[in-house]
Amino acid sequence: MAKNDDITRREFVEGTAVAGAAAAIGPSFMASSAAASALSSVQIVDGASEVTLQVNGKPAAVTVDPHVTLLDALREKLQLTGTKKGCNQGGCGACTVWIDGERVNACMTLAIMQEGRSVTTIEGLSESDELHPLQAAFIENDAFQCGFCTSGQIMSAAKVIEAGAPETTDGLSEAMNGNICRCSAYPQIRAAIRDAAAGKG
C-alpha cells in the first residue's frame, strides 16, 4: 500500500528516547531484541489438535481443527446440543453460553481460542436435577413457542438478573437485545425474567 504517501498524516514515534515516555502511559511493553527467542516458543497449530476446556464444571477434551467454533465443538464433539445454532453470525443469541462467567455468542469464537477456559451451557445452568428458577419461570409464563431461542434467552437472562434486571420494559429489552425470538414471545420472556428476578421462578 502507498503508506509512504501518507507519512505526513502520521506522527512517527521512533527511537528509545520517546519509547520510554510512550511506555509510561501505554500498556506495558518494551521493544526488545528478544523477539527471535520468544518466537521459538510459539507453537503453530496446523490441523486437528486436542483442546481442553472446562465445560459445566468438568474438564472436556475435544480434538478439533483451528477453524471449529466453540459452538460446533459443544454441539458436535461434546453432544451438548442444548446450545442452538441460529444465524451463526452473532446476530440472534441462540448460541449464548458463558465463558468465565460472561455471556457470549459461542458461534463467534473458536474452540481453540478458549482453551483452558470455563464454559457454561444450558445443560450446566442448574446444578441439580431441579429446574433452574429461570427455566421454571419460562415454563410458567409460556415464554416460548418453537423454543429454539430459549436456551440462549435463559443463559442471557441469568446474567441480566445477576447484574440487576432493569425495571423498565425498554431497559429490560435493551439488556436482552442480543437474543432474538422469531415467535416474538418477548412479553412472556420479560415476564419470566421478572418472575425469576423476584424469586418466583
Binding site: S41, P66, M113
Partner: peptide, 13 residues
C-alpha cells in the same frame, strides 16, 4: 475455510 493458529504470549512474539 481452515487456517493455522498460534497464540503468542508476548507482543514481541
Amino acid at each position: 475455510q481452515n487456517f493455522s493458529y498460534a497464540r503468542p504470549d508476548t507482543v514481541d512474539s
